[in-house]
Lab assay of single mutants.
Amino acid sequence: MAEQVALSRTQVCGILREELFQGDAFHQSDTHIFIIMGASGDLAKKKIYPTIWWLFRDGLLPENTFIVGYARSRLTVADIRKQSEPFFKATPEEKLKLEDFFARNSYVAGQYDDAASYQRLNSHMNALHLGSQANRLFYLALPPTVYEAVTKNIHESCMSQIGWNRIIVEKPFGRDLQSSDRLSNHISSLFREDQIYRIDHYLGKEMVQNLMVLRFANRIFGPIWNRDNIACVILTFKEPFGTEGRGGYFDEFGIIRDVMQNHLLQMLCLVAMEKPASTNSDDVRDEKVKVLKCISEVQANNVVLGQYVGNPDGEGEATKGYLDDPTVPRGSTTATFAAVVLYVENERWDGVPFILRCGKALNERKAEVRLQFHDVAGDIFHQQCKRNELVIRVQPNEAVYTKMMTKKPGMFFNPEESELDLTYGNRYKNVKLPDAYERLILDVFCGSQMHFVRSDELREAWRIFTPLLHQIELEKPKPIPYIYGSRGPTEADELMKRVGFQYEGTYKWVNP
């Protein structure tokens, strides 16, 4: 592979701008107003304001973009700056750019259920340069409990009458099928589907988006991507930290609602779906819905739930269990780990287990898709061969690698495990991989909904998990304890083995 010439960040961002501006969906010269509902909250200060700053800094926003914060707290732009700027990672050389960014910011205080507050917000936006005809993007960085009041008031008082209007809704989209349907029906009564952007930030990850290209742009994968060759698929999300004093919020939802029903299920769809007619948003989402419709409700015998306990040999936070978090209700049975087996009941995947695993306070930070292939028929190497695996590593250190057998150097035919490896950090030294939120917010500006969740996708996802969630809430089974920093409950490994996964433990990928 030829040595790549190092590029400056300015040059890299210039390439990104060229890609972005050559499309006809990006209205570079139009006025846009980006409204952050819930501007005083954690999500706004840690993710949304920093993301908008990065896009502005790199010249990736339309030229005439204004940012308006809205929340109940009586704040000023200076207050917003004070709480969000520490997350910007701005350099001293960017000081003038930073001043320009905050000059485009404003803030309006108001209630979430008060019509007069929204009329005041609308008047404020109209007073901005060309504000009355601007395109408006409303980001709901809010708890779902206020979605209905907020969307109703936005629709009645704050819509642009000339430009387009788009609304970005953060997960969780309800707690179960019934609450999700209620919320979807409410929002759909106010906005068209092409105006609604239900954001799952995992769909903005580079390697998640790469799944489609790997599958449908490489001839070698087509013939082997089926039940005849693939023994099982494992989708993993692991965090090495616990709730760390923020367990009160987590306890309301648990690990299945927080990660599995959305992030992991979306990745499953991209692995299992048929080739779409095109890369058009609805063509892709149509195929994802077909996959979900082929999955039956989760069966309790295919589920393992766990909850982390303190590690007596650990240090600091590792010595504390979930129930030691003062914000967690006493005696909570909320799971911090889950392993679930699903089956896609169609011709391509009949009988292939899709194993979804996620948890907190585990032994490493990792998100990946792992396809394990069947054993080689007619073994001539005296059971020395391990199964081939194709691994798409989402985070950290984005990579695609194939675990395969090669001859060990020497005189004899002794096979050993090795890999074919594409590590993004080595291959793409001159490429700026956008943060997931950067990519998705740019998608909203461009009107691309491919990486957002459609209402029928959402409904099918909740259909699969709601009976299990209701059973857990009714019966309150005690989750299996696992030690902070471990791989999780051993019962999860036993479940995976029972459905056909072979864990060798003899080879570990190392970032080159």
Score class of each variant (00 low, 15 high):
Ala2Trp: 03
Glu3Val: 06
Gln4His: 11
Gln4Leu: 07
Gln4Ala: 11
Val5Gly: 05
Ala6Arg: 09
Ala6Glu: 12
Ala6Pro: 07
Ala6Asp: 10
Leu7Ala: 08
Ser8Gly: 14
Arg9Thr: 13
Thr10Phe: 08
Ile15Pro: 05
Glu18Leu: 08
Glu19Asp: 04
Glu19Val: 04
Leu20Ile: 04
Leu20Thr: 02
Gln22Gly: 10
Gly23Arg: 12
Asp24Ser: 06
Phe26Ala: 05
Ser29Arg: 07
Asp30Pro: 03
Asp30Met: 11
Thr31Val: 11
His32Tyr: 15
His32Glu: 03
Ile33Pro: 00
Ile35Ala: 07
Ile36Asn: 01
Ile36Ser: 00
Met37Ser: 00
Gly38Val: 00
Ser40Phe: 05
Ser40Lys: 04
Gly41Leu: 05
Asp42Gln: 12
Asp42Trp: 14
Leu43Gly: 03
Leu43Met: 09
Leu43Asp: 08
Ala44Ile: 02
Ala44Phe: 03
Lys46Glu: 13
Ile48Arg: 00
Thr51Pro: 03
Thr51Arg: 07
Thr51Met: 13
Ile52Ala: 11
Ile52Phe: 14
Ile52His: 02
Trp53Ile: 00
Trp53Glu: 01
Trp54Val: 09
Trp54Gly: 13
Leu55Met: 15
Leu55Asp: 01
Phe56Cys: 02
Phe56Asp: 02
Phe56Ser: 02
Arg57Asn: 05
Arg57Leu: 03
Asp58Ala: 03
Gly59Arg: 05
Leu60Ile: 11
Leu60Tyr: 08
Leu61Lys: 00
Pro62His: 11
Glu63Phe: 09
Asn64Cys: 06
Asn64Lys: 09
Thr65Asp: 01
Thr65Arg: 00
Phe66Leu: 05
Phe66Asn: 04
Ile67Cys: 04
Ile67His: 02
Val68Leu: 03
Gly69Val: 00
Ser73His: 06
Arg74Pro: 08
Arg74His: 05
Leu75His: 06
Ala78Met: 12
Ile80Trp: 11
Lys82Ile: 10
Gln83Val: 09
Gln83Phe: 14
Ser84Glu: 04
Glu85Phe: 06
Glu85Tyr: 06
Glu85Ser: 05
Pro86Asn: 04
Phe88Tyr: 03
Lys89Cys: 11
Thr91Ala: 11
Glu93Tyr: 08
Glu93Gln: 12
Glu93Asp: 06
Glu94Asp: 12
Lys95Arg: 04
Leu96Phe: 12
Lys97Tyr: 04
Lys97His: 05
Lys97Ile: 08
Lys97Glu: 04
Lys97Asp: 03
Glu99Leu: 02
Asp100Cys: 13
Asp100Thr: 08
Phe101Thr: 00
Phe102Gln: 02
Phe102Glu: 02
Ala103Trp: 06
Ala103Cys: 05
Arg104Val: 04
Arg104Phe: 04
Asn105Cys: 13
Asn105Trp: 07
Tyr107Gly: 02
Tyr107Lys: 01
Val108Arg: 02
Val108Phe: 07
Gln111Glu: 08
Gln111Asn: 11
Asp113Lys: 06
Asp113Ala: 09
Asp113Thr: 11
Ala115Thr: 08
Leu121Pro: 00
Leu121Gly: 00
Asn122Phe: 04
Asn122Cys: 13
Asn122Asp: 12
Ser123Asn: 09
Met125Cys: 11
Asn126Tyr: 07
His129Glu: 13
Leu130Gly: 13
Ser132Asp: 07
Gln133Thr: 12
Gln133Met: 14
Gln133Gly: 08
Asn135Trp: 01
Arg136Leu: 05
Arg136Cys: 09
Leu142Ile: 08
Leu142Phe: 12
Pro143Gly: 12
Pro144Met: 12
Pro144Leu: 12
Thr145Tyr: 08
Tyr147Gln: 15
Tyr147Glu: 11
Ala149His: 09
Lys152Asn: 13
Asn153Leu: 08
Glu156Leu: 10
Ser157His: 12
Ser157Pro: 01
Gln161Phe: 08
Gln161Cys: 04
Gln161Pro: 13
Ile162Lys: 14
Gly163Asp: 00
Gly163Trp: 01
Gly163Ile: 01
Trp164Leu: 05
Asn165Lys: 01
Arg166Phe: 00
Val169Ile: 09
Val169Arg: 00
Glu170Arg: 10
Pro172Met: 05
Phe173Lys: 01
Arg175Gln: 12
Asp176Met: 03
Asp176Arg: 05
Leu177Phe: 07
Gln178Lys: 12
Gln178Cys: 10
Gln178Ile: 07
Gln178Asn: 11
Ser180Val: 06
Arg182Ala: 08
Asn185Asp: 06
Asn185Arg: 07
His186Asp: 03
Ile187Val: 03
Ile187His: 03
Phe191Trp: 11
Arg192Tyr: 08
Asp194His: 04
Asp194Leu: 02
Gln195Asp: 04
Ile196Leu: 06
Tyr197Glu: 00
Ile199Asp: 00
Tyr202Trp: 11
Tyr202Glu: 13
Lys205Trp: 15
Lys205Ile: 15
Glu206Val: 08
Val208Gly: 15
Leu211Cys: 09
Met212Gln: 04
Met212Trp: 08
Val213Met: 13
Val213Cys: 06
Leu214Gly: 02
Asn218Ala: 00
Asn218Ile: 00
Ile220Ala: 05
Ile220Glu: 03
Phe221Ala: 12
Phe221Arg: 01
Ile224Lys: 01
Trp225Cys: 01
Trp225Pro: 01
Trp225Leu: 02
Trp225Glu: 00
Asp228Thr: 11
Ile230Asn: 01
Ile230Thr: 03
Ala231Thr: 10
Cys232Arg: 15
Cys232Trp: 02
Val233Gln: 02
Ile234Pro: 02
Ile234Asp: 13
Ile234Ala: 13
Leu235Ala: 11
Thr236Asp: 15
Lys238Phe: 15
Glu239Asp: 12
Phe241Leu: 13
Phe241Ile: 13
Gly242Gln: 04
Thr243Asn: 12
Thr243Glu: 09
Glu244Tyr: 12
Glu244Trp: 08
Glu244Arg: 15
Gly245Tyr: 09
Gly247Asp: 13
Gly248Val: 12
Tyr249Val: 15
Tyr249Arg: 15
Phe250Leu: 12
Phe253His: 15
Ile255Gly: 10
Ile256Phe: 03
